[in-house]
């Protein structure tokens, strides 16, 4: 199945990548000097949130998080371009259906909690988005061909919402004279919550749509046909 040269070449390339990573890690670990962690920890109170992880992800290094959300969007575009989605699962039995009817609202409620808790405790947009995505996956496993997602137009809008809001906030702040995604004092917390809410919706919708694994147009026509 795999050609002979690949069987030799792939392990060699993997070992080379591993060696480079070990080398890079040893450089970073052995070399002295100031660590960014200490500088960041000192300035957490200025970031608008008290959870150090969220302050780094959404304030100090917000640019990285914006690109991460963009990566998810790109992955979804790739999945949509692969072709039609897999056929839906068979409808759930009454017992499973009853459980799903309980679990899905709880998951959505936990999404909201996780999003809000991210400001002061472990949590945040990605974890909250994963819970929202899990609600979609649960619905899909119960036989819902669209995993509870809206129609194509709204689905497309929701999947770009995270990147859209993130970039818009950055650009508006730039226009007002601050840096790109440099929050003005006093507004940081609300801007972070605003961006995280949009990102959570996008991540959840993206993950659920990725689980369906195909372009959304076919979903809708198959649903209206049955």
């Amino acid at each position: 199945m795999t050609p002979a040269w690949a069987k030799v070449l792939i392990p060699i390339v993997l070992i080379a990548i591993g060696a480079v990573l070990v080398w890079a890690f040893s450089l970073a670990a052995l070399e002295g000097g100031d660590r960014l962690a200490l500088i960041a920890l000192e300035r957490v109170p200025e970031s608008g949130v008290s959870n150090p992880i969220t302050s780094v992800l959404l304030n100090f290094r917000a640019y990285d998080t914006l690109l991460e959300v963009a990566v998810l969007l790109t992955a979804l575009l790739g999945i949509w371009s692969l072709g039609p989605a897999a056929p839906a699962f068979q409808p759930a039995s009454p017992i499973l259906g009853g459980m799903i009817a309980w679990v899905v609202p709880l998951l959505i409620l936990s999404t909201g909690y996780m999003l809000w808790a991210g400001g002061h405790a472990p949590g945040g947009a990605f974890q909250a988005g994963a819970l929202l995505g899990a609600a979609g996956v649960t619905l899909a496993l119960g036989g819902d061909a669209s995993a509870g997602l809206p129609g194509e137009t709204r689905l497309r809008f929701l999947s770009v919402l995270g990147v859209l809001v993130f970039t818009a906030v950055g650009v508006i702040l730039m226009a007002l004279g601050y840096g790109f995604l440099t929050y003005p004092e006093g507004y940081a917390k609300w801007l972070i919550i605003f961006i995280e809410t949009a990102a959570t919706l996008s991540i959840g919708v993206t993950l659920a749509a990725a689980y369906l694994g195909g372009e959304p147009r076919d979903e809708r026509t198959s649903r209206s046909a049955t």
Partner: peptide, 21 residues
């Protein structure tokens, strides 16, 4: 704990579901 949450929810849960599909 942040990473633990992300690993359990995304790494094990959703990636697992995606790969099973």
């Amino acid at each position: 704990p942040d990473l633990a949450l992300a690993e359990a929810a995304i790494g094990a849960g959703l990636s697992g579901a995606l790969m099973l599909a």
